Simulated scan of single mutants.
Amino acid sequence: HMRKSKPVLVAAGLIWMMIGGYYVMNDIPKLTEHAFRHNLLEFSELMLFLLVAMTYINAMEERRLFDALRVWMVRRGFNFRTLFWLSGFLAFVISPIADNLTTALLMCAVVMKVGQGDKEFINLSCINIVVAANAGGAFSPFGDITTLMVWQAGIVHFAEFFSLFFPALANYLVPAVIMSLFVKNKKPAASDEVVELKRGARRIMVLFLITIATAVSCHSLLHLPPVL
Rank of each mutant, 00 (worst) to 15 (best):
40 L>E: 01
41 L>M: 04
44 S>A: 07
44 S>H: 05
44 S>C: 09
45 E>V: 07
45 E>G: 07
46 L>G: 08
49 F>N: 03
49 F>Y: 11
49 F>T: 04
50 L>Q: 06
52 V>P: 00
52 V>G: 01
54 M>W: 08
58 N>D: 15
59 A>L: 14
59 A>Q: 07
61 E>P: 03
62 E>Y: 13
63 R>A: 06
63 R>V: 01
64 R>H: 14
64 R>N: 13
67 D>M: 14
69 L>M: 10
69 L>G: 02
70 R>F: 00
72 W>T: 05
72 W>C: 04
72 W>M: 08
72 W>V: 02
73 M>L: 15
74 V>A: 15
76 R>Q: 10
76 R>E: 00
76 R>S: 04
77 G>F: 00
77 G>P: 12
78 F>R: 02
78 F>P: 09
78 F>H: 10
79 N>H: 12
79 N>Y: 02
80 F>S: 13
82 T>R: 14
84 F>M: 10
85 W>D: 00
86 L>I: 04
86 L>Y: 06
87 S>I: 04
87 S>R: 09
90 L>I: 07
91 A>C: 09
92 F>S: 02
92 F>G: 11
93 V>C: 03
99 D>I: 06
101 L>F: 11
101 L>V: 01
102 T>W: 01
103 T>P: 03
104 A>D: 08
106 L>C: 07
106 L>M: 15
106 L>S: 06
107 M>G: 03
107 M>N: 10
107 M>L: 14
108 C>R: 13
111 V>M: 14
112 M>Y: 07
113 K>F: 08
113 K>T: 12
114 V>Y: 11
115 G>K: 11
117 G>F: 07
118 D>Y: 08
118 D>W: 05
119 K>L: 06
121 F>P: 14
121 F>A: 11
122 I>A: 12
123 N>Q: 15
123 N>T: 15
124 L>M: 09
126 C>E: 11
126 C>F: 04
127 I>N: 12
127 I>D: 09
128 N>S: 15
130 V>I: 06
130 V>T: 11
131 V>E: 08
131 V>F: 09
132 A>I: 07
132 A>W: 09
132 A>S: 14
132 A>Q: 09
136 G>L: 05
138 A>K: 09
138 A>H: 10
139 F>K: 00
139 F>W: 01
140 S>D: 04
141 P>T: 01
141 P>V: 02
142 F>W: 04
143 G>P: 01
143 G>H: 02
144 D>C: 00
145 I>A: 01
146 T>L: 10
147 T>L: 00
147 T>F: 00
148 L>W: 08
148 L>M: 10
150 V>I: 13
150 V>C: 05
152 Q>D: 06
152 Q>E: 15
153 A>M: 05
153 A>P: 12
154 G>M: 01
155 I>D: 01
155 I>K: 04
155 I>F: 09
156 V>N: 05
156 V>G: 02
157 H>C: 03
157 H>G: 13
157 H>S: 14
159 A>G: 12
161 F>H: 08
161 F>A: 10
